[in-house]
Design a protein around this nucleic acid. Sequence first.
DNA 1: TATTATTATTTGTATATACAAACATTAAAC
DNA 2: GTTTAATGTTTGTATATACAAATAATAATA
Lengths: 155, 155
Amino acid sequence: MYIQTKCFYFVFVMKASGSRFSKCLYFSANAFARKVEKLATNSWKKINLTPSHAYLLMTVIEEPGVQPGKLAEEMQLTPSTITRLIEKMEENKLVVRTTEGKVTNVYPTPKANQLYPQMKDCLDEFYTNCISILGAEEMKRTAQNINKLSDKLSS
Amino acid sequence: MYIQTKCFYFVFVMKASGSRFSKCLYFSANAFARKVEKLATNSWKKINLTPSHAYLLMTVIEEPGVQPGKLAEEMQLTPSTITRLIEKMEENKLVVRTTEGKVTNVYPTPKANQLYPQMKDCLDEFYTNCISILGAEEMKRTAQNINKLSDKLSS
DNA sequence: TATTATTATTTGTATATACAAACATTAAAC
DNA sequence: GTTTAATGTTTGTATATACAAATAATAATA
């Protein structure tokens, strides 16, 4: 339940484990993802990036010239989603695109490269938060387990 | 990578466990949720419902007159999202809303009640699919684990 | 070489979701 | 009893994401 005071919302969330749908993986997986997303969003807010922009940008910086298709694979998003993310980041002068023939290459701008250390800090902060809330071992094990199941789901 | 043939896309997805971000819970949780969502979407497509509409509708049928706030708690979505879902389902003549004072009650229509057995079938199909891909034990354990972590994240 | 199939990317359109703010109603406090 | 706080819901606006179709370029094949 949302309790709102002076236009701020403090969240009293029902426990996932008590929900009518707690046994349903659709429900669990989505609710969990939204919460992790929120945590990540907070970590990257200070440099004004959403988590997906941040991850895409880190990849572009670490692999300058990377193609959208490759980004889609790595991030497990559709090509169209990648195009949309890139468009947004081009507006914000964080990446540039060059197209030759059917191939597009994405490069970081100097502004993006300058931002890189701060991005690393945000990532660290996110991990630190995760670990302090979930525990290091628990987090690692869960990520591994989820990846394993993800792989099963995509074949 | 997406391979498209005659306007159909067959997906060769990079393994989550091989991704640059495989250790990151933001990434894992989201990618996993998207895949589970897809599986669920397929199960409910035959009765033309998205998973979130389906879950909301099942709750409304099982608890006629339930209030949006309660739905938000149970589904762990924000009140505004619930409002939007209800609007959509009102258009489709699956629920009706009555408002008295500040309280709103949501009721299923006869059409919705008629659909209920089929919804149960879709849910069953979804579970069956999950189990056949992930294994019954694995699925159960994962849902429990994810719920536990969800709870930790929301306090 | 001409035609066909494949590949990489983008566009049009639609969805679910959220935050912040706005309403409207009820409860509390003074 | 009037003002203030709390509550339940909805709206305005913005986001990420996806599917299907469209482009455009290259590769394969006949």
